[in-house]
């Protein structure tokens, strides 16, 4: 069983849900990314999402746009992101070693690197899945077969605007889990979570056995608690990226990130 399936199976066994944490790889630099990843897994992150920095991130709000810019200015490349995952994998010990790492990327850096080569290098480095923000099912045919061949999870996105037919298509095409966008808009911390979300998640779950996680705008322990009542996991991104931005260059950075993730986890535990 691959690490993603194993992770959700284990969580299910103890009737728990997944906490997914996003950070932009290489922000502020690759070594710090590795330190943060190690720390937040110990603090309770179940799945790590690493953003591949891109010059024109049109689905991202100001926080992740700025993180991308910082990473690119620090010299991050696609090759560097993949190499860094390999280094992170080598460092993760004991239970942490099973934590799935997925990459979140825009299509252009990936296609420029070469889809086949990207998938092979990703798998070799210990990447478990890839989410491509701007590759809807219509354009994802070639990528899906590469994922199937290499054993990489091709994680599909769904949104509040997705019709029943599109939910079916994504469910059939995707593997690993389904990433559901919580609201209309771009990434970024928000003060509330839309109430219609539950119905959307239920619609998706009736079309697939894949776990369904929710992202975009999830920034507080109470959001995570609310969302994981009906979804299989919650993704926190911009809020963590903001903490990294705020403490970049400080010795507190890694510890602060860990503390934040612990708080998010506590929110989930409170439910039981």
């Amino acid at each position: 069983m691959n690490r993603i399936d194993k992770c959700f199976a284990k969580l299910k066994e103890r009737s728990d849900k997944a906490l997914l944490c996003f950070l932009t790889s290489g922000d502020p630099d690759f070594a710090t990314t590795a330190d943060i990843v190690e720390e937040i897994i110990s603090a309770g992150a179940d799945i790590i999402e690493l953003g591949v920095p891109y010059s024109d991130p049109l689905a991202d709000g100001p926080s992740i746009q700025a993180a991308s810019q910082r990473a690119l200015q620090a010299g991050a490349t696609v090759r560097g992101v993949l190499d860094n995952v390999k280094k992170i994998r080598e460092r993760l010990q004991a239970e942490s070693a099973d934590a799935p790492i997925v990459l979140m990327t825009y299509f252009n850096p990936l296609q420029k690197y070469g889809m086949q080569r990207f998938a092979e290098d990703a798998v070799r480095g210990g990447v478990d899945g890839v989410i491509i923000v701007d590759l809807p099912p219509e354009e994802a045919g070639e990528w899906k077969s590469i994922c199937d061949d290499t054993g990489l999870a091709g994680i599909m996105l769904l949104a509040p605007t997705s019709t029943k037919d599109r939910i079916k298509v994504a469910a059939n095409m995707g593997s690993g889990f389904i990433y559901c966008v919580s609201r209309m808009g771009v990434t970024g911390a928000r003060s509330d979570v839309p109430v219609e979300l539950q119905e959307l998640i239920e619609n998706i779950k009736s079309a697939t056995d894949l776990p369904v996680v929710v992202g975009f705008g999830i920034s507080k322990p109470e959001h995570v608690e609310f969302v994981t009542r009906f979804a299989d996991g919650a993704v926190v991104g911009s809020a963590l990226v903001n903490i990294i931005a705020e403490h970049a260059g400080s010795q507190e950075l890694v510890c602060r990130a860990g503390q934040f993730v612990k708080e998010l986890r506590t929110g989930m535990a409170r439910r039981e």
Partner: peptide, 12 residues
């Protein structure tokens, strides 16, 4: 050509 956009825009 084609459509390389986030899923959210496809219905529009």
């Amino acid at each position: 050509g084609g459509r390389y956009v986030p899923e959210i825009l496809i219905p529009a």
